[in-house]
Amino acid sequence: MSAGFEHGAARRHLRLLGAQLRLSTLAALEYRVGFWTEGVVGLAWSLGGVVPLVVAFEHRSDVAGWGPWELVLLTGFFLIISGVYAAVVQPAVSRSMTQIRTGTLDYLLLRPVDPLASCLTAQFEPWSLIETLTGIVVVIVATAKLGLSPSVGQLGALAVVLVCGLLSLVALGVLMLSASFKAMELQNLTSLMETLLGFAHWPVSVFRGPLKLVFTFVVPFAVMTSYPAQSLIGGLGWAELLGAVGTTLALTVGARVIWGRALRGYTSASS
């Protein structure tokens, strides 16, 4: 469906984002208990996921060529990604799915802005950003501990893979949302996604065979956590960088096309 690009569209979408953020933040402040249920618990959840890594280092001096502090660096990037998922992608997708089920998506579609932009900003859980902030701190500490002094080129590569990682995360969210147009029961895809996200704790080099391909190209956890860490440590080659960009482009374009088709089949539940 054409977004209808016109003068001032970009500005209006930015203002939409701002207004929605404001609204969600206001709602989040209504329930202060969210600081505990979303912020702190989310962080504990993610840190708990580190236990298997600790177990591995109990018995091994390295995990698939990664030393302990290198994995701490990777864990930092995991926290960043997981926080963004919990703060931005998951709430927006869940909220939109609820709106599809109850039919109130109608009002969203009646706005003179891109429906996908409306859906992706539908809800936002600011407390979960605690996890992201912790992740940034962990990355900085690990970089210092490892004595890394990344070059400009490496920082550029880091920026590229981080953007790619976040974009593919959003694209996966859009795909889940599109699927839920087809069948309401597919709404628990978000929990499948949460489960899978746990494997982004591990460097992609641990995985072998088809699972490695899946985590590199289909659900590209490699791009989200391994590549950013590698780009700082200095093990990220051109092939991986190009692969990351290609995968992200394919996912993003695919998600956009599938979204458009899903929207055409919208039946607007009447309650």
Partner: peptide, 19 residues
């Protein structure tokens, strides 16, 4: 087509759904 110029000139109010 759901063009923005169009959507800005109409409105739909549904008694059973709230925005």
């Amino acid at each position: 087509d759901r063009r923005p110029e169009f959507l800005r000139r109409i409105a739909l109010v549904m008694g059973q759904k709230r925005q």
